[in-house]
């Protein structure tokens, strides 16, 4: 059973008005449990519309959405669905509302009608996982935290529901490089410890190349690329057609190729780039020694 299964999904905003806009156009997508999917695409390409179908915040108009075995179009399964799919929106810190961090994190589990000690356990665990030690932060007001802390508190509020699937909409938007790295590391940690399936919307190709196991690109409401980062970014023509920017490592590969140093096109991460360069130098010096041997 796929974690998320979408078939022929089409969605139109403001039907029959001058504001009419087709956000999704016959999209089909299967996401398996354990995958880390990076969702990319320009503003207005339908990413947000797509992910809001995952937990029934947007009800499907045409097509089929089955998440974790639950039909997302059934009203009865909606609540359950929302607890299984944790959704972290853009700038989640703007949704904090309680007077203490612990109370805010407990909002989701409380809505799940869990027993009190289970709520406490989950709040503690969620706060520890995101790096806000319970004893230090539980009683503080979420409004007096720093920007990065606020965002982590908001993420804790989602993962306290211990969802099977975690969906994040631009989780690093507006953060400085250090904050960005922290959040990315946190997401990988969450994937390992709490939610085995992750879908992340991002505009940072570097982040996606480093973290995602699969890239899905949307353009004008259609899927235009789907595969591992190596496959998607490795095919430069297709990537350009899909309107994708390249990860820095791939850009360096291209710049090196222009100087006559050719590496594999499937190099998309820092580590692969370093390995590729080391291998290149080794091959070259081996070649040189060989050539030198001949000279002697």
């Amino acid at each position: 059973m796929s974690a998320i299964s979408i078939k022929n999904l089409t969605y139109v905003y403001s039907k029959k008005t001058p504001y009419e806009k087709k956000a999704l156009d016959n999209v089909s997508l299967q996401i398996e449990e354990g995958e880390f999917v990076g969702l990319v695409g320009a503003t207005g390409s339908g990413k947000s519309t797509l992910i809001q179908h995952f937990n029934g915040l947007i009800r499907k108009q045409e097509g089929e959405v089955v998440v974790d075995g639950l039909d997302a179009s059934k009203k009865k399964s909606l609540k359950n669905l929302r607890f299984r799919v944790g959704m972290v929106f853009q700038y989640p810190e703007y949704q904090l509302f309680e007077d203490t961090v612990a109370k805010d994190v407990a909002f989701g589990p409380k809505n799940m009608k869990l027993p009190k000690d289970e709520i406490d356990r989950r709040v503690r665990r969620a706060m520890e996982v995101v790096g806000l030690p319970y004893d230090e932060f539980a009683g503080r007001s979420p409004f007096e935290l720093s920007g990065g802390e606020k965002r982590r508190a908001a993420i804790a509020g989602v993962i306290a529901m211990e969802p099977r699937i975690l969906v994040l909409d631009e989780p690093v938007a507006g953060l400085d490089p250090a904050g960005r790295r922290e959040i990315l590391e946190l997401i990988l940690k969450l994937k390992a410890e709490v939610s085995p399936t992750v879908v992340m919307v991002s505009h940072y190709m570097d982040d996606l190349a480093e973290t995602a196991s699969r890239i899905v690109a949307l353009k004008d409401g259609r899927i235009v690329a789907d595969g591992t980062p190596e496959e998607v970014f490795g095919d430069r023509e297709k990537a350009a057609e899909a309107g994708l920017d390249l990860p820095t490592a791939a850009k360096i590969v291209d710049a090196l190729a222009a100087r006559g140093i050719s590496l594999e096109k499937t190099v998309v991460t820092r580590r692969a780039l370093v390995n590729g360069l080391v291998k290149y130098r080794k091959d070259k010096s081996d070649g040189n020694t060989k050539a030198g041997d001949e000279n002697v």
Binding site: N55, L57, R82, G86, F89, Y94, F107, N111, G157
Partner: peptide, 13 residues
């Protein structure tokens, strides 16, 4: 709308 969605995602009704 955004806040409503976010709180609904946390199970608010």
């Amino acid at each position: 709308g955004k806040i409503v969605s976010a709180q609904k995602a946390r199970g608010a009704s």
